[in-house]
Design a protein around this nucleic acid. Structure first.
Lengths: 333, 333
DNA sequence: GTGAAAGCGCTAACAT
DNA sequence: ATGTTAGCGCTTTCAC
C-alpha cells in the first residue's frame, strides 16, 4: 500500500479511501490510485485491515459438517456459500467424521482465524465449551443436530415427525413386522428418529416389544450386515425403516443380495442420489439440506446485523417421496 | 495477549513463546501462562501474528471447484482437507458454476485473505491473470483441467486415454453405431474426452463421419433431451459414450423412459453414485477424485516447502468398471 | 479533499 | 530464561 501511495504521489490514507470506496476523494485522485494499484498488482490485505477496523469483522464464516464428501453436507455447504457470496463472506469448511476431538480442534482453528460466525453439525456430547465464544458475541448456529449444554440458534429437520410419517406410510399399507435400522444413539437425530418410529407404531396399536430395532449403524457395511442378518431370520420383517442415507444404501444392498427387494418394503430417512432410477425406486422421507443451509446462514447474518432476539429453533419440514419401495405390500396378511 | 501477560505476571513475549511452543521458558512460567490464558478464554489471533511472522504464512488454502455440491468436488475437497489437517492448514472452498467472472472474483477474494496456496478447477478461457500471483511465489495447482495462458502444476485424469478405453470397450463388443454425448467444448476436459473417443474409433477403423456427436450438454435435463432425440431416430445408436456424470444420468433417464436400457449399451466417464444398484449396473470409466485432491495438496505443500522444480503435470489414471450397461451387445450385427 | 500519527495483536531482533 | 522495542499493513482519529 505504501508503494501504491508513493507511485500515485498521494498518502496511504488516500489509497485506503479509494480501495474502500470512501467519499471525499476527487475523481482524478481515484484514477491515479487505481492506475498505480494495477501496475503494482496490488491486492489489499484484508487481515491487516481487520486488525484495526472498528467492527473487527473478517468476513469469514466457519462451517463444520460430518464430511464435505457427503451429499447432505454438500448441499448445506452450497446454500451457505450462496448466502455468504452476496456479503463478500468466504467460507471455511471442515469435516468432523463424528469425532468430538476433531470438532473442538476445528472450532478452535476457526476461532483463531477470527471467523465472524460458526455453523455446525455438532458431534460432541456437549457444546458447553462454546459458551465463552457465544458470550463474546460470535453467532453460532447449529444445523441438523441441536446443541447440548448451551443455548443457541438451531436449524433442524423435524426428525421425529419425519420418522413417524415414514412409519405411518408402512403401517397404512398393512405392515406390522416393521424393522428399525438406525445410527448410533449418541447422535441426537438418531434418537429422535427412533422415537418417532416407536411412537407412531404405538399410536397405531402395533406392539413394539418384539420388533427388531438395531442401533449403532453408521456406514453402508454395518447396515448391510445388520439387514442380512435380519432378513435371514424365519420371522424376517416385511418392512424396514432406515434412519439415514448410508444405512438405506446398505439395506438396499442386502435386499438385492437376497433377492428380496421386491417383497420387502423400505422407507429411508434422507434422500439418496439416483433413488428414482433403481428398481423399485426408493421411497424416502427427504430432508431439505438446501433450506437448512440457507436458513442457518440467514440466522448468522441476522445476528451479525444486530438481531438479539432469544435463540430460536427453526424446524425445516421433511417430505415423503413415494417411489415404489415404500409401497410394497406385506407378504402375507 | 496483554491481559494474559498481566494476569500471569510476565511479558507479552513470554506469552507468545508459550503459545508457539518456543524453547527457553521455564516449566513454572509455562504453567502460569497456560492458566492465565484459560481463565481469560484467550484465543490467539492467527492473523495478527501472520502480519509480523517471518514466513508470512496464513496456514490457509483456497479451493475452487465447480460446485461443492457435487460428488467429484466433494471427494477432491475431502482429500485436500485431509492433507491440510496435519499441517494445521484450514481450507476455504468456493463454487464457480462454470462462471469465469466468479472464478476471478473468488480468486481475488482468497488472495486478499492471503491464502498460502490455490487449488483450482478452472473455468475461464485463460488463467493469465494469475501470472503476477505465481511470480510472487504463491503455489497454484490446477486440478481436473489444465491451465491456459500460464504454466503451473496440474493434476488431471487421463481424459483422452480414459475415453479411448471406454470406446474400445464398446467397439470390442461389436458396436459400430456409437454415439458421443458430451459437455461444452469450451471445457478442456470435454475436448480431450471427445478426441479420445474419435481417435479410438479411427484406430478401430470405424467411420466417424455419420456418427452422432452431441456437444454442449452440461446438466441432466439437456442430456436427457439429446438422448431422447437420438434414440427416437430410425438409425438409433446401439451404444452411447457419455463424457460426464450428469450427462450419464440424463442418458440413463432417457433410456428408461424409452424402455431401451436393456438393449442400448452405455459407458460413462466419471463414476456415478449407486451406479451398481441400478439395473443394469452402469459401466463407467471412473476417475479418482480422492487421489487428485491428495496429489494436488501434496504439490502445494511441496512448493511451500521450497520445491522449485519445473511445473509438472501429474496424470491420474482412470479405471474401467464393468457393471453391465457397457457389456450389452449390439441389437443386430 | 487530503495526510500524519497512533495503534490493532502479534512476532522479530535484540537486549538483559 | 525473560523482557523491550520496533514494525507487519492497514484503519482510526484528528489536523490541515
Amino acid at each position: 500500500m505504501r508503494h501504491v501511495a508513493a507511485l500515485a504521489g498521494v498518502g496511504v490514507k488516500t489509497v485506503s479511501r479509494v480501495i474502500n470506496g470512501e467519499p471525499n476523494v476527487s475523481a482524478a485522485t481515484i484514477a491515479k490510485v487505481r492506475e498505480a494499484a494495477r501496475t503494482l498488482d496490488y491486492q489489499p490485505d484484508l487481515h491487516a485491515g481487520n486488525l484495526r477496523r472498528a467492527d473487527g469483522r473478517t468476513r469469514t464464516l466457519g462451517l463444520l459438517v460430518g464430511s464435505v464428501d457427503n451429499p447432505f453436507a454438500g448441499a448445506v455447504h452450497r446454500a451457505v456459500e450462496d448466502a455468504a457470496l452476496g456479503r463478500g463472506v468466504a467460507v471455511f469448511a471442515s469435516s468432523l467424521d463424528d469425532d468430538p476431538d476433531r470438532e473442538q480442534e476445528a472450532v478452535s482453528a476457526f476461532l483463531r482465524r477470527r471467523v465472524d460466525g460458526l455453523i455446525l453439525t455438532t458431534v460432541s456430547e456437549s457444546q458447553a465449551y462454546l459458551a465463552p465464544e457465544l458470550r463474546r458475541g460470535t453467532p453460532i448456529v447449529f444445523v441438523d443436530r441441536e446443541p447440548a449444554g448451551i443455548v443457541s440458534d438451531a436449524v433442524v429437520s423435524d426428525n421425529a415427525e419425519g420418522a413417524a410419517t415414514a412409519t405411518r406410510h408402512l403401517v397404512e399399507r398393512g405392515h406390522r413386522r416393521v424393522a428399525y435400522l438406525g445410527d448410533r444413539l449418541a447422535i441426537q437425530t438418531a434418537r429422535e428418529r427412533r422415537r418417532g418410529f416407536l411412537e407412531e407404531l404405538g399410536r397405531a396399536g402395533v406392539a413394539t416389544r418384539d420388533l427388531p430395532v438395531v442401533d449403532g449403524l453408521h456406514d453402508e457395511a454395518s447396515a448391510r450386515r445388520a439387514a442380512l442378518e435380519l432378513l435371514s431370520r424365519p420371522d424376517a420383517p416385511t418392512a424396514i425403516f432406515s434412519s439415514q442415507n448410508l444405512v438405506t444404501i446398505g439395506v438396499l444392498r442386502a435386499l438385492r443380495e437376497l433377492g428380496r427387494h421386491h417383497d420387502t418394503a423400505l422407507v429411508g430417512f434422507d434422500d439418496v442420489p439416483l433413488a428414482d432410477l433403481v428398481e423399485p425406486g426408493i421411497t424416502v422421507v427427504a430432508q431439505d439440506p438446501q433450506a437448512i443451509g440457507r436458513l442457518a446462514a440467514q440466522r448468522v447474518f441476522a445476528r451479525l446485523d444486530g438481531d438479539d432476539a432469544a435463540p430460536a429453533r427453526t424446524i425445516v419440514p421433511t417430505r415423503l417421496i413415494e417411489r415404489g419401495s415404500g409401497e410394497i405390500a406385506p407378504r402375507e396378511v
